[in-house]
């Protein structure tokens, strides 16, 4: 036992890193720890004389698997949010300023706890937005509250924006996390929007102040 102390110590690294791996919560952190586990496993295999297994573990188990899993996690753990793009050609300018400055940071903060990321997809018209929501291309729709058809209008007129979520679990998360004075969160699998393009929020604010 004592003459093989180094072998025992190296072999003990494998369950140590494996326990580190299963206690990770963030999927990206878990991927990095998986790479560490692969490196230690390749060391243990080489120590026991299995050079071919060590090479396969290092190339396939570490390099290929964590790269593929990183792409899979990146494409699956995202909240696809559809917004209305105005006639401005620049995408950054297309999103109204209040959306970019207040709502998106709050939304990112709310979904960051669940390791999701926000993916904003601007759509040209309300019809395209409705179509995308009904065809499950996007998970949620964020529009100005005036854009909603009056038949489905909510009583909560204080919030300047409406966030309609298609997925129940996501709705529960966002309704609890987002401030109600900023955005009204609703749950519906189909949304009816007015076709008329709304005036920009800044001019609405000026009209309200002047009126």
């Amino acid at each position: 036992m004592l003459e093989n102390l180094d072998v025992v110590a190296i072999a003990a690294l494998l369950p140590l890193t494996a326990c580190m791996l299963v206690t990770q919560v963030d999927p990206y952190h878990a991927l990095i720890i998986r790479g560490i586990l692969g490196a230690v496993a390749a060391l243990v295999y080489a120590l026991f004389g299995a050079a071919d297994v060590a090479l396969t573990e290092a190339l396939v188990g570490t390099m290929l698997s964590i790269t593929l899993y990183a792409i899979a996690v990146r494409s699956s753990m995202s909240l696809r949010l559809g917004t209305l793009a105005t006639a401005a050609p620049n995408l950054d300018a297309a999103v109204p300023s209040a959306l970019g400055q207040q709502l998106f940071p709050a939304l990112r903060q709310a979904i960051k706890k669940h390791h999701l990321r926000l993916e904003v997809l601007p759509y040209a018209s309300p019809q395209a937005l409705q179509f995308a929501l009904e065809n499950k291309e996007i998970h949620a729709v964020c529009v100005p509250a005036e854009q909603l058809a009056t038949t489905q209008g909510t009583d909560d007129v204080a919030a300047p924006y409406l966030l309609n979520v298609r997925i129940p679990r996501l709705y529960e998360t966002l309704a609890a996390a987002l401030p109600p004075e900023l955005v009204a969160v609703s749950f519906s699998r189909a949304l009816r929007l007015t076709s008329a393009a709304p005036p920009p929020p800044d001019s609405q604010l000026q009209n309200a102040l002047e009126g």
Binding site: I32, G35, A39, M63, T67, A70
Partner: peptide, 10 residues
């Protein structure tokens, strides 16, 4: 030599 390619991709 090759194993650090995973690090770069990640």
């Amino acid at each position: 030599s090759v194993g650090n390619a995973a690090l770069m991709l990640l």
